[in-house]
Design a protein around this nucleic acid. Sequence first.
DNA 1: CGTCTTTGACCGGCGC
DNA 2: GCGCCGGTCAAAGACG
Length: 179
Amino acid sequence: MNDTSQYQNPNPNYHQVTDSTTTDLLNELLDFKFSDYFAFDGVLEEENSTQANVDSSFNGSSSSSTPLASNIRKVNKYKTKDEFRLAFRTKSKLEIMDDGFKWRKYGKKMVKSSPNPRNYFKCTSEGCSVKKRVERDRDDPNYVVTTYEGIHNHQSPNCIVHYNKNQMPCSLQPSSSLH
DNA sequence: CGTCTTTGACCGGCGC
DNA sequence: GCGCCGGTCAAAGACG
């Protein structure tokens, strides 16, 4: 609907910030902490379990006795060494986390692991096959779980590069995508 | 009119 | 081998 075709970008690194109220709005909409990031290079353990495993594994306090293995049913399917995967969750009222790249929605699916639908996006840039999945956190609907799959072979068309050497530009793509 | 979203169908992998 | 499930495709409709 409109909310997907005209969504506002809540990403604070995204340069399309146009007025002074936007920051406040962002603060309301989005509690974007870097601690919400966690990257998986090769193995993605959150794949089938949404946030439950993500939190426990990221915090290193996996006191949960839930056997991860039982939740990682299809990890092997994605366990390609060359494929970059990045999953994070964001406290946001918006489901769409535009990171400056242009995405085309190509699917929406209800999944067993979550009562909320999972949305599938592809990067529309020519020759770029990066995909992302977006779904609301099963346990806390205030959070949105986003999973990026692949590396952009281009920079964000909407991104003003204002980062230090050690920082990721714009937001989410790994440094290896910066050529 | 072009672009994008929606959504049902289809496909392939995995567990039983 | 079968059924379930997640991911993708593609036609149709909506929107600007």
